[in-house]
Write a protein that binds this DNA or RNA. Sequence first.
RNA 1: GGGCCUAUAGCUCAGUUAGUUAGAGCGCACCCCUGAUAAGUGUGAGGUCUCCUGUGCAAUUCAGGAUAGGCCCA
Length: 923
Amino acid sequence: MDYSKTINLPNTSFPMKAGLPQREPAILEIWDKEKLYESIREKRTGKEKFVLHDGPPYANGDIHVGTALNKVLKDMVIKYKTMRGFDAPYVPGWDCHGMPIEHKVTEKHKIEHTKEGLLKFRGACRDYALKYVDIQKKQFKRLGILGEWEKPYLSLDHGYEAAIVGTFARLVKEGYIYKGLRPVLWCMTHKTALADAEVEYADETSPTVYVKFFLKDSIKNIYPETDGKKVSLLIWTTTPWTLPSNLAICLHPEIDYALIKIKDEYIILAASLASKVFEKAGITDFTVVKTGVKGTALEKLRYQHPFMGREGLVILGEHVTDQDGTGCVHTAPGHGEEDFFIAKKYGIEPLSPLDDAGRFTSDVKLFEGKKVFEADPLVIELLKEKGVLFYEEKITHSYPHCWRCRKPVIFRTTEQWFLSVDHKDLRKKMLASVSGVKWYPALGENRIKGMLESRPDWCLSRQRYWGVPIPVIYCEKCAEPILEENTLNKITELIGSEGSETWFTRETSEFLPEKYTCKKCGGAAFKKDTNILDVWFDSSCSHFAVLKNNPKLKWPCEMYLEGSDQHRGWFQVSLITSMALEGKPSFKNVLTHGYVVDGAGKKMSKSLGNLITGDEACKKYGADIVRLWVAASDYADDIRFSDEILARLMDAYRKIRNTARYLISNLYDYRPGEKDPAYEKLTDLDKYMLHRLEEVIQETTGHYDKYEFYKFYQVIYNFCVVDLSSFYLDILKDRLYVNAPDSIIRKGSQFVMYRILTALTKMTAPVLAYTSEEIWQELRKIGAAGKSVHVADWPAVEEKYLNNEVKTKYEKIITLRAETLKLLEVLRNTKVIGHPYEAKVVVSTASAEDFALYKHYESELAGIFIVSQVELLKGEKNLVEVQKASGVKCERCWNFSATVGKDSTHTSLCERCVQVLKETKQY
RNA sequence: GGGCCUAUAGCUCAGUUAGUUAGAGCGCACCCCUGAUAAGUGUGAGGUCUCCUGUGCAAUUCAGGAUAGGCCCA
């Protein structure tokens, strides 16, 4: 007789091999078809809301693993909160305006600077953005992320654009918006401002001049010998053309400045640079009169501009170095960012006497009409004439160039719109509000506070084309901006119904009341602002545009979850608009994660060639592996992504999957509730495992609640490997296979296995979105309720299954088991035994208490150690011995037993197996 | 250059309120099993806790610095 036919072997069609890259898309299709997201919404209607507000990714290119990580984290939070009973809708969004799209589109379309040309260009940008919204949407869905993919929010939606303009209008009304000057990088060929990203650095040879600027104020109180003598500060510049705009000379407060006598005049420059400069200039005949005077002592001295007929001021700045030059920095606030900001501190207004093409205006009669670089030699000539040119040379240095025309760019001061962060104490209020927000990890609070303390006013205007227009109209005659409420409201309304294109298609007059005249000069002709708003302003309005305008959502929301770069970005700009206009933050919790880096901890970049897209990862590993990677990583720090890491996770995935598969395969004849033994009838092993499960549920719930997914991963993985695979399930084999199918011992174990599997499946659902669903569908076959694991409720801790008494006892048994296994290894290595069934364990115990405990489990011990026999002795000391089992191997259960052969019909079976055959009428 | 942060086995993570041999799982090596089988069990080997200096009787743990790396800014 073939006894293997009489045992209850595992049976399932659930595949061992996952084949995720193929299987997942099929599951996704079912979710789509069965409208899983909508079903979840329906089930959670009326429940407490948990709104995670999606930070919009930029609609350009394929999603990067970093973006995938971000979205998966969000999805895990939402899936978990949903299972915990919250109504957690997810409305994903996209950031659609801005420069990167402009650039991509410019590669194909040249912008024609006409109304039609501009509209065409913007249309192309829009198409481009929508195309990538679609591409990215597919990639996000592929990752198993559930959400309102059919109705996402886009920053180019009419409603969203109206919210942007409306927010601007409200900020104007509250007095936060002002017009000011600011230096920008300017391309003289394209006659346009450039963003930092549009500039590339290349070597450039420039004329370099050392120029004497004569002091007007006497410094005889510091240097008595200079009384009545000519004293100059020696400055240095590589852009002589900026000298007409010189308004100040900047010194470092702490650097030593030297007074040097040459013939009959005195020159001041940084002491440490003097010899270098004089050597260059070939001057040997000089005397160092005095050193040790700090820049501070020279502050606020006045000097005579060498040819502009005005005086300038000596100021102090930390940016001055004594590494090169003279330590006296020529400062033209109209032509440099640092110059601008340092001059601002001294109340010096910048001078920028250039037109759009970089030609001097009539403000500088000497060079009127000359382009800046043409002016260089003319300036040098003039300096020579005036006798102030100390030394001249050519140097090659790194200089910014326009990335399109490759021509050198300049700094030029322009008028821009700003948001004041100190108006109405906004900065202070923001700083205070930050403490009321919960930051994950807690250090995020530090970081944003530091940034809030130092951030300058927000420059809102951009000289670009693809974005939301600045809704300001100016008087043609006096350039007075119209910031009246009703005008701004009308613009907002029109943009709301027609989109921002309306700004370009409609005439200026259509945005103004009839017969409107300028309040300042009475002019009747007007023009629209041609600039757009910073795209960060777009995203700063998302909480208004999305949370306030969608009744399914709420303001403020529970959570923002983004990369750590958003402390300066989205978190901060959202805080600005929400604090300025609503007086509280638009979020209650902020979770930040680090950046994805490669296996060596280096950042991912095109140039390093270590970049990987979300799609590539899904194709190579499968979404669930990517999700497991996200869950297993501690996102507080940088997150490494490498083949080795993913290979380890695939191993882990297989282990989890196989553990689930094994549970499934032993539940084919189980129906929940049908033949479940009462708790008291369960063996202590089963009780112990029920207890362990409750512990695991408690632990994982705690970890999820703190968003510490990697801790969840460790707990659940160890539970699968240590508690289940190598302990419980290994021991269970004998019980499940050999005993009668409906025996209490088998049914009891199945009851526990079922509870473990359902809980395990639910607990892993937020992470292994697809696999848990696959397992759930198997559970449904035997009676689990609910069409998807994602509509199921989170497993509740069953207090009645907590049993510390059994736990304490069992931990002793487990310790004894570990000792036994070590000894079995010795027998195996000496070839005394192969399978542990060939062994017998003899346990001598000195402690009466322990002996009693072991005695209590005497009948189970052999099964627990997976050996054939266990003998317990009350001995002098604690000792475990292992020896060959006695008796003969039973052909059915493979245990060794002295009872084999006792039955006359089944001569190769042990007593137990004979009994089982009788029970099951197979005798 | 500045701000914030990180650094424990090949990998992912623990841990030490400073105190005898620093833990887990995986991976690896070896063995077993062949009734979870492109599976499963067991045993074992892996770490100068990034480096330097300091404060302690004692430092991987505290302080200072360095190096490497990340984000943001200049």
